[in-house]
Design a protein around this nucleic acid. Structure first.
Length: 787
DNA sequence: ATTTACATCGTTTTT
DNA sequence: CGATGTAAAT
């Protein structure tokens, strides 16, 4: 080989090194390993995302050039000089193409992440490196990527392109329906347990036929098999899929349609999977089918951070990767850039008690740092107060609220902390828990949109057919669905031709009102903007009016519906192509955590699960007690469960950058019962010399305790209420209504004001309507017309 | 068909 | 404790 060629190879590597040289050796190796299977075992805070981002950038820019000995014939002095200039900095840009080899096109890259947030972050960082090019890359969660594929090819397996995605609530409703049909007592088999069993089966790609076969002797499981079968049939009839189906159906699609599989195998030359330790069998199958052809599969994960066993994640996927792909390159990232030595040592100590792990030891040169603050407090209120005090004083010293995160095992724990926070006037945000899209009023409006989008969506149709009350009762609805079942046609078809079916003819009038409403809105959906559509739904269905009629208590709900409308407007302005099914998909698949923005200066409260992938300067881990963390379920569930909890503890500890506080309480009130709990075993697994321990013993219980339970809530409430009114920028009704005033409401028509009570900036009116009787309404929202 | 009152139930983590 | 469902009354 000529000298020029040898020089070129060296220089080419140097060029790449210049671009990606900021990383440590291991990271760099992961970035430039382009071909073949690659396993990156990345400890917490080891720059996993950075590796992913840079690897993609490297693939697009240089392809597999780093490892290659190939030199194009055309290379000569000119290219050599260009490389030299680039390396010494006198040249800013390389001429495209010269140094790359088999460079990947962005659309040939598939990056699968665990959360939408991670996907968004990935895309954003890649866009910074590659510019607009990044837009064509597929980056998303398993669910969103599969949904995208299914929207396109779902017709091959009997779905339309606007199929509905059922969430847990829809699943429960549907399963209840199934159980009614099959005469399964809920006491014998709770809805949840059946759904869990089915979900497990699906995760392992077991069809209902196979499930039935496998459990022939077992009466209980045979019943479940029957339920499974019927459940699937009804889903299909409704053109709906649950979360598991989205993955399973994609795998099935590939199984039965060779051409589709080949298309995606050819399309995705490079596949990357983040958080590989949390994949389940179905996801594993999906990935390995896609990667089969090119074998350019890079998985990144940390076996110590596998925390989704309950959802079918099997740690085996990452453990066996090397057996699966004998030629795999394995890279370990053990240098941590996030935490102090103290925190890392604690994390390492805890996780070392697990047996099922590949084993690694995180280290850092960030310095020793503070000891871990371990506190024992009398009860959960005191615990919350301790946390709040710490945060207050750190903010006084110049810290920011958003540098602090409070992590707990269960969402139910947030309440105690929220109360104390609110009282102290500390801004906070709760992530997860009650999600916006889980609120009843939001789900109702969404259900309307779903039905407009997909008339066959039986479960959601049933949800809204009598919401608000239209006088269509349970009997009518189940008759109609019986007829639909019997004829094998969608329930909406039955409703459209009520007259033909004597069993429901009595309610014909009311049903026609409903179907007309849906038809009208469906027609509107074709031309109007989605924002207009939501408003039309809220108005014309009478939903808004019925909320308004509830007055005072429904204020929040009215606000929420309005917020939904503005979030749709936002969706429309942010996305180029918008569609109703696109929006519905987004809200089904996108979680609150994804919307979490670090910009607002507030303390963050969330579960440890939600915190995966995030980091904070100060972290408070509350409720480290036996029975809480580890939870009772896992204590009695066996050693595997405990190991999972321990991994969760490991995740929790490694979220902290500077300071880590861990606390437990002697007694804790949960679900209305007070329990005495011992400190968590995980706490004891942290070596004492790493800790700064203090315990505040509870006072003797005898002394008559003064409780301030009812001291100030009304005041607080009034303040919060006033604030909210301020926010909603009430426009109307500074004008007061007098008793006896005749008014007109757009739904309830004419009436007489019985009373008017000022409340904050608004006025609560009691109005006797001529047609519908007396209602309490808030004048700001009701937009009454004076007569 | 709708409202109300009362009992019962189960309580992990999430796409 | 809270949400959810069932039974009885309007």
């Amino acid at each position: 080989m000529s000298d020029i060629k040898n020089d070129f190879i060296k220089l080419r590597c140097a060029v790449i090194q210049k671009d990606f040289g900021r990383m440590n050796d291991m990271q760099f190796k992961a970035v430039v390993t382009a071909k073949g299977p690659l396993l990156v075992l990345a400890g917490a805070g080891s720059g996993k995302t950075t590796v992913l981002v840079n690897r993609i950038a490297c693939l697009v820019k240089y392809g597999s050039a780093y490892d290659s000995k190939y030199v194009p014939d055309a290379v000569g002095e000119y290219e050599i000089n260009m490389a030299r200039e680039y390396i010494d900095g006198s040249r800013a840009e390389l001429e495209p193409g010269v140094f790359s080899l088999y460079a990947a096109k962005p659309w040939e890259i598939l990056a699968i992440t665990f959360t939408n947030k991670a996907a968004g972050e990935l895309k954003e960082r890649i866009a910074k490196m590659l510019g607009d090019n990044a837009r064509d890359m597929w980056a998303g969660t398993f669910h969103s990527i599969c949904a995208k594929i299914l929207r396109r090819y779902g017709d091959r397996i009997g779905y339309t392109s606007h199929f509905t995605i059922y969430d847990t609530d829809d699943q429960k409703r549907l399963m209840k329906e199934v159980m009614k049909h099959l005469n399964i007592e809920e006491k014998m088999m709770p809805v949840r347990s059946i759904l869990n069993e089915i979900s497990h089966a699906k995760d392992n790609l077991i069809t209902c036929e196979e499930f039935k076969e496998q459990h022939q002797g077992d009466e209980r499981l045979s019943k479940m098999a029957a339920a499974y079968g019927m459940y699937q049939r009804m889903l299909k009839n409704a053109d709906a899929m649950d979360f598991d189906d989205i993955i399973v159906n994609t795998v099935r699609l590939f199984e039965t349609n060779e051409d589709v599989l080949e298309y995606y195998q050819n399309k995705f030359k490079y596949i990357m999977v983040d958080e590989y330790q949390d994949t389940n069998h179905a996801q594993y199958m999906l990935v390995s089918r896609l990667a089969e052809k090119n074998r350019n599969i890079c998985v990144v994960g940390d076996d110590d951070q596998s925390i989704y066993r309950f959802r079918g994640a099997t740690i085996a996927n990452i453990m066996n990767f090397e057996d699966e792909y004998k030629d795999a390159t394995v890279i370990r990232l053990e240098q941590n850039y996030r935490s102090t030595t103290m925190i890392l040592d604690a994390a390492n100590a805890v996780i070392s008690h697990n047996t099922a792990r590949k084993g690694k030891n995180l280290w850092t040169d960030n310095g020793e740092g503070d000891k871990i603050f371990v506190r024992t407090l009398p009860d959960e209120r005191e615990e919350a107060r301790f946390v709040v005090d710490q945060i207050s004083s750190s903010v006084k010293d110049g810290g920011r609220f958003c540098d602090n995160a409070i992590l707990y095992r269960m969402n139910a724990q947030s309440n105690a902390i929220e109360n104390v926070m609110a009282r102290s006037g500390i801004p906070y945000r709760v992530i997860g828990g009650y999600r916006f899209y889980e609120r009843k009023e939001i789900r109702d409006v969404i259900a309307y949109l779903s039905v407009i989008n997909n008339h066959d969506d039986t479960i959601r149709l049933r949800r809204i057919i009598n919401e608000p009350k239209r006088g269509i009762g349970e009997v009518t609805i189940s008759n109609a669905s019986e007829i639909a079942e019997g004829l094998g046609i969608p329930i909406y078809e039955v409703l459209k031709h009520v007259g033909d079916y004597p069993a429901i003819a009595k309610s014909a009038k009311k049903i026609v009102v409903f179907t007309n409403l849906i038809d009208e809105l469906t027609e509107m959906a074709e031309s109007a903007s989605m924002n207009q559509l939501v408003e039309a739904v809220a108005e014309r269905s009478g939903y808004m009016a019925s909320l308004e009629a509830q007055g005072f208590e429904a204020l929040d709900r009215i606000d929420n519906v309005k917020e939904l409308s503005s979030s749709i407007a936002l969706y429309e302005s942010e996305n180029e192509e918008t569609s109703l099914s696109g929006f519905l998909e987004e809200i089904a698949l996108v979680n609150d955590i994804d919307k979490y923005d670090a910009d607002s200066d507030a303390v963050v409260l969330m579960t440890v699960h939600s915190a995966k992938g995030l980091e904070f300067p100060n972290v408070f881990l509350v409720g480290w007690e036996e029975g809480m963390f580890p939870g009772n379920q896992s204590i009695y569930g066996g050693p595997e469960e405990i190991e999972e909890e321990r991994r969760l503890a490991y995740v929790a500890i490694t979220r902290a950058k500077k300071r880590l506080y861990i606390s437990n309480a002697y007694t804790r009130m949960l679900y209305g019962q007070t329990n005495r709990n011992l400190p968590s075993r995980f706490l004891k697994e942290i070596p004492q010399e790493l800790c700064d321990i203090e315990a505040k013993k509870p006072l003797a219980e005898s002394v008559g305790q003064v409780t301030f339970k009812h001291a100030s809530p009304s005041k607080e409430y009034a303040a919060a209420y006033a604030e909210r009114m301020q926010e909603s920028k009430s426009k109307a009704s500074t004008e007061l209504y007098s008793v006896g005033q005749r008014v007109k409401h757009k739904v309830f028509k004419d009436g007489t004001v019985l009373s008017a009570t000022r409340m904050g900036n608004d006025v609560l009116l009691e109005v006797a309507f001529d047609d519908v009787g007396t209602k309490k309404i808030m004048s700001n929202f009701a937009k009454l017309e004076k007569l």
